[in-house]
Nucleic acid binder design. Structure first.
Lengths: 204, 204
DNA sequence: GTCTATACACCGATAGAC
DNA sequence: GTCTATCGGTGTATAGAC
């Protein structure tokens, strides 16, 4: 009886290719990274890359497909929190933590660049973004009901801006400088109702 | 007596190449835009591009070399203003106005991508950025002295974040949605001293 | 100054051996 | 499943005619 394909080993190989490719794409860009480069970095050969992935684009997409469960878990945890504004800040904090990765800015830029050139990639990251956007929107709506967030804000638009703020933190990513204190200040003050005193800044 | 080179004509040719290239780079990316594409779009031939520019990279750089006088003028005007916070908001507004250009996001992303690959480009945009950064820093320092800005802020770091906010607006650029109201809200509240009441939001 | 033509190099994806 | 070898296609930059 034929041995079934070793799914575990296959998954590990795919993962190795994805991880190696993410690093190369972030540092050198999509077009400047050859399939051979990826193969070498993953410790295998060019042909093998095309055995596991149909395209070079598919390798790129796989980087972001891995995020789905992570983001979902992040949002679920935030939604379980009692204080909506605190939950927003926690989400922002955790997202921004990745900005300390030296490749963070590179991979985001590359994503923004490729997103218009690959409809399938657009589909993937639109899904990722929707998870975040829905999470933030729900939290902001709760905050408005609780009187902790400016009711003049459109919840969805505000949510989109918070995502943009996190993206901005990625872009200015300097591994030596933690963006989180400033992000907290921005988000806190952005959401605060007009009448309340702004919270005292806790950062330098 | 030989006619001197027609400097005006040369400048116009260079400009035509730069403008055509900016559009193509923004839409298709640097690597996906060929020198021949640029030449065709500018109404001339491939060889001519390399007569006016040493490199394809040099064509890309020329896009940002044009910005220097514009930015300098923008900052000078802001520095002449009496109210420092209002001046910051004016600068942000004018910078963000460009975000309505459908190519805004594309060209910014492409810049971010190429900046690590071309030291000469880095030099150019570092200069551009310094003009903005110095302008914002001075205004914020003035605001702190006048008691209109949180003295707990580091002026230069705050200035950098304001630039990041403008970049964020570019990234989320949607020609149908004017980012300026939200940007004003973000910047105003970001700078406000802890004791003062936050200004009432004027946006929907 | 501007064009055409091309040298030279490189890459994505496939074919086929093992 | 993984490799080596390769084909077809493409792009930068130059050379040389005009």
């Amino acid at each position: 009886m034929p041995r079934p394909v070793d799914l575990e080993r296959s998954a590990a190989r795919r993962e190795a290719i994805t991880v190696a490719a993410a690093d190369l794409f972030a540092r050198h860009g999509f077009e400047n990274t050859t399939a051979t480069d990826i193969a070498r970095a993953a410790g295998l050969s060019s042909g093998t890359v095309f055995y596991y992935f149909t395209d070079k684009r598919a390798v790129f997409r796989s980087i972001f497909e891995r995020d789905i469960p992570v983001l979902r878990e992040l949002v679920d945890r935030a939604l379980a929190c009692d204080d909506p504004v605190a939950a927003v800040l926690t989400m922002v904090d955790e997202l921004a933590a990745d900005a300390l990765d030296p490749n963070a800015s590179g991979i985001l830029v590359e994503l923004l660049r490729q997103i218009d050139r690959d409809p399938e990639l657009l589909r993937v990251v639109t899904g990722n973004d929707a998870i975040l956007l829905d999470g933030f929107t729900t939290l902001i709506e709760r905050g408005i009901e609780a009187g902790a967030v400016d009711p003049g804000l459109d919840a969805r638009e505000a949510a989109a801006w918070i995502v943009h703020l996190v993206d901005a933190a990625y872009l200015g990513a300097d591994p030596a400088r933690d963006p989180r204190p400033m992000l907290r200040r921005l988000v806190t003050r952005f959401l605060a109702p007009p009448t309340a005193d702004p919270p005292t800044g806790e950062q330098g």
